[in-house]
């Protein structure tokens, strides 16, 4: 059972997660079917900036985050931005969408000029997230847990970060037990996705360079 405090934390995190989203007009442009390679590149890079801003606004709402050392806050956000973006875009891709929308989104990525060697692991990740049938609470908590990883480069006070992450992990563990009773490994599988995210993160810089060249 979630304690009252844990339920309140969960509600708060989910509310913050839902409140901060990429602007609608930008999201609508993504669903336009006809676009040139250049238009696509510009839109996707614009969306990346917006995604980071959304991520920062969400993170500011994580209890205790703004009381961390300021440079540690920067280090955590820098270290987790790419992973958080992949998580958020996985949610978008695996959500049930009106007819044809997922195909348009997929087409944008496949025609973007990004090499197949990077696209394949990305879509494999989206597929593995989809298979988990995650609830919104799980997306929100997993994002917070990703951001609060104390082993990011340049984080000085790792203990302070771990102290913020621990309650999130506990709430997620309980939530998994309550919502996925038929899958006792659900929590472990969610954490396994974080490992997959690290791989995507490491490949990301190489992916950007190759994309820019193409």
């Amino acid at each position: 059972e979630l304690s009252q405090e844990q339920q309140a934390l969960l509600n708060y995190i989910v509310e913050a997660y839902n409140k901060h989203r990429v602007p609608q007009d930008m999201a609508k442009k993504l669903l336009q079917e006809h676009f040139s390679a250049e238009e696509n590149f510009l839109l996707l890079t614009e969306m990346a900036t917006s995604h980071v801003q959304v991520l920062v606004e969400f993170t500011k709402n994580i209890p205790g985050f703004q009381s961390l050392d300021h440079e540690d806050q920067i280090a955590l956000l820098k270290g987790s931005a790419v992973e958080a973006m992949f998580l958020r875009s996985a949610e978008v891709f695996t959500k049930k969408r009106p007819q044809g929308q997922t195909e348009v989104l997929e087409e944008r990525i496949r025609k973007s000029g990004i090499s197949e060697e990077f696209i394949t692991p990305m879509f494999n990740f989206y597929k593995s997230i989809g298979e988990l049938q995650m609830r919104q609470e799980e997306h929100a908590l997993l994002t917070a847990i990703t951001i609060l990883s104390s082993d990011r480069p340049y984080v000085k006070d790792q203990q302070a970060v771990e102290q913020l992450q621990e309650p999130m992990l506990e709430v997620l563990w309980k939530f998994c037990k309550l919502q996925h009773p038929q899958d006792p490994q659900h929590f472990a599988r969610l954490l396994g996705r974080l490992t997959e995210l690290r791989t995507l993160n490491h490949q990301h810089a190489e992916m950007l360079e190759s994309w820019r060249m193409s």
Partner: peptide, 22 residues
């Protein structure tokens, strides 16, 4: 890649200081 990291940090610092304009 180092250019991307600097760009990312600048966006983060700006967003941390101010409000994201919805």
């Amino acid at each position: 890649p180092s250019g991307n990291t600097i760009g990312l940090e600048a966006i983060i610092r700006k967003a941390l200081m101010g409000k994201y304009d919805e």
